[in-house]
């Protein structure tokens, strides 16, 4: 199998893995939302809860991994404040690093947690009920839409600001960057996230994932 992404570019490897995991998360969230809106969730609240809980587990893993791998790069020793930013008169010279620090973008996954909790609260109110009544469905739809919007906003920042910054940085652990991002080192089944991604990604996404995994196994 030909690799979609070049493994010689070690700086981009971590971004490619993060990007694919992000893609799987957004795709699965879209599916959960569509099934709710189209009322094709035969199992009602319980079915929704199962799918959403799985999504949360992967999202928390993603959040931990981005904190672990990206924070050393996007959080310099000396923290910046708005006052420290240099501005030319009439035009900005804020770098990606300044923007990430100033706008708190490296902590955006933290901002997502309350939105997840709101949805769980709606689900908790429905414990014991098997069918989704229209009001509950509306509230879940509202919660999921807020979550989707936030996640897509976050993805914009990830792809346009964070990744370019990481690609110009030197990553300390080459081995981790190459192989560790998608593996849960604390779990018995280290590849559980990869399995979940295979079920969530589009055909193109799966091809890219397999290509990456193939490349990693050949390089290790």
């Amino acid at each position: 199998m030909n690799s979609v992404y070049s493994l010689s570019d070690k700086q981009s490897m971590i971004c490619v893995q993060a990007s694919l995991l992000y893609e799987a998360l957004t795709a699965r969230l879209e599916t959960i939302y569509d099934r709710l809106v189209d009322q094709i969730e035969p199992g009602g609240v319980r079915e929704f809860e199962n799918h959403f809980n799985n999504w949360i587990s992967v999202f928390l893993f993603f959040s931990d991994q981005t904190q672990r791998y990206f924070s050393p790069i996007v959080k310099p020793e000396q923290s910046l404040s708005l006052q420290d930013l240099n501005f030319d008169e009439g035009k900005t010279c804020i770098s990606n690093l300044d923007l990430i620090n100033e706008l708190g973008m490296d902590e955006m996954t933290v901002d997502i947690i309350p939105l997840v909790q709101d949805i769980l609260n709606v689900v908790a109110d429905e414990i014991g009920k098997t069918q989704l009544i229209p009001r509950t469905k509306r509230h879940l739809q509202r919660g999921l839409l807020r979550l989707k919007t936030k996640i897509v906003d976050y993805g914009d920042v990830l792809h346009t600001i964070t990744f370019p910054l990481i690609q110009t940085s030197s990553i300390e652990s080459d081995v981790d960057a190459r192989s560790g991002f998608l593996q849960d080192q604390d779990a018995d089944e280290k590849d559980w996230v990869i399995e979940w991604m295979r079920e969530s990604l589009s055909e193109t996404g799966i091809l890219a994932l397999e290509s990456i995994l193939d490349g990693i196994s050949r390089n290790n």
Partner: peptide, 17 residues
Amino acid sequence: KAENAERALHQALGEAR
């Protein structure tokens, strides 16, 4: 400063985004 940050964010994300 916030206006400058908004401009910078606009530049970084691009018009379409």
